[in-house]
Design a protein around this nucleic acid. Structure first.
Length: 175
DNA sequence: CAATAGATCATCT
DNA sequence: GATGATCTATTGC
């Protein structure tokens, strides 16, 4: 939850494409029934229980990959779902990967969209976020931001917890 | 504009 | 065998 606030405004770089994190959701682990990790360690949730600073990428609805950051210490489950990015570079590449997006706001304004735009797949599951193909960096001149919070989206359990965070007023946040 | 259906499959019961 | 941390196209007002 603290990590969620720290990650907003940071930049994800993958290949020639990069985007600024403008919306995230926290998934806390054992007590959070909406979290994949709430039912313990399985083949899929293994990395959520691992050390922080790694990527958890999972496949959903038979069609989309979603990107998370592992946030808690080793043995403690916790993840941050990246929900929306503001495209910064590699726009032509993103457009090719997302032919249906007509406006810049449609490139990465959702969990499934951003993985397509950046070319992120399950091959990056478990990857270190510092020295792997995918990295997270701080913006050179980080502008001050106002953080808004509210209930998470697209879940049926624990849907009322205010664990969704976004940059107030940013137009690349999902609906 | 809002509501709904369809696509499509890994994971878990 | 059902479900799901989604997106898009289509239908209906």
């Amino acid at each position: 939850m603290q990590v969620a606030r720290e990650c907003l405004g940071k930049v994800i770089v993958h290949g020639s494409t990069a985007g600024r994190i403008v919306e995230v959701e926290a998934y806390l682990g054992l007590d959070d029934l909406a979290a994949h990790s709430s039912r313990g360690i399985t083949e899929r949730t293994r990395v959520i229980f691992g050390p922080p600073g790694h990527a958890y990428v999972y496949f959903i609805y038979g069609m989309y990959d979603c990107l998370n950051f592992v946030t808690e210490q080793d043995r403690t489950p916790g993840a941050l779902l990246i929900r929306a990015l503001e495209p910064l570079s590699g726009l032509a590449v993103m457009q090719r990967r997302r032919p249906k997006a007509r406006r810049l706001e449609d490139f990465a304004s959702g969990p499934g969209k951003l993985t397509l735009a950046l070319g992120i797949t399950r091959k990056l599951n478990g990857a270190n976020l510092v020295e792997s193909p995918i990295t997270v960096r701080r913006l050179r001149d980080e502008p001050p931001i106002e953080i808004a919070e509210g209930p998470r989206i697209g879940i049926t359990k624990c849907a009322d917890l205010p664990l969704r965070f976004w940059i107030a007023g940013n137009r690349f946040v999902s609906r």
